[in-house]
Design a protein around this nucleic acid. Structure first.
Lengths: 116, 116
DNA sequence: TTTCGTTATATTTTTATTTATATAACGAAA
DNA sequence: TTTCGTTATATAAATAAAAATATAACGAAA
């Protein structure tokens, strides 16, 4: 009798890092995209169901560690404040998606090699 | 003046998973290898500076969720007890290394594409 | 100058995770 | 049958991470 084949999958994650640690992974990219779309750190955080503090800390960390800020924020004024993703941030998003697409192909291609 | 080039690196992790979650990644593979080499869950844990409980929990989880156990352990007797990695476990180690080697090549090849 | 919703920040509270501690079960060998 | 070091398990203590709460700063527009 054939042994039941368990649905084993290959999965993984990639990120861009500095010596100081991880700088850009899927979560941060999604955050940047939602900031871009909403113009607000708070709205982006709400959409991702994370606290504003968590979102702000991530943005702040990226701004500190990229050589150029990825988000510029303003407080006060119409709407209470706003945040925009910089050219640098847009490039980072784009770069990550290109790498991630390659990685997904890698996972797909190597998935068939699993034989346990 | 040229902008200082920050040493951005691409990095990542892969693992084998089931619907129920991660089953085999770099940490578990190292644990299996050290159990194989030492014949002891405790010694493997000490070498990796993790608690015995943590190591035991990992082994237990793998044995539960692989269709065949990857480690067989005995208590009592000469040396107090022992643990051996099964054929299934050995295959899992081997498979993981093959996949991880491919992944390292992937990282190397795509590293040059990072331009931020 | 008052209102508004957001940014920015600190502090507290809660929850989750990890580590430490203790102890029973075990069986070969002395 | 006593000793030994390990497996197996439970519980408590300590740390760390996350979430909640509070509040000041801000500036355009009403």
């Amino acid at each position: 009798m054939m042994e039941k084949a368990a649905p084993l999958r290959l999965n993984g994650r990639i990120w861009i890092e500095l010596d100081s640690g991880r700088l850009l992974g899927p979560g941060r990219v999604e955050l940047l995209e939602r900031i871009k779309a909403s113009g607000s750190i708070r709205q982006a955080a709400l959409q991702m169901e994370m606290s504003y503090k968590q979102a702000w800390d991530l943005v702040n960390d990226m701004n500190d560690r990229f050589d150029t800020p990825v988000v510029i924020s303003h407080r006060g004024g119409k709407g209470g404040g706003s945040a925009v993703v910089t050219e640098k941030g847009l490039k980072a998003i784009e770069q990550y998606h290109i790498l991630d697409a390659s990685f997904k192909r890698f996972l797909e291609e190597n998935h068939k090699n699993i034989d346990l």
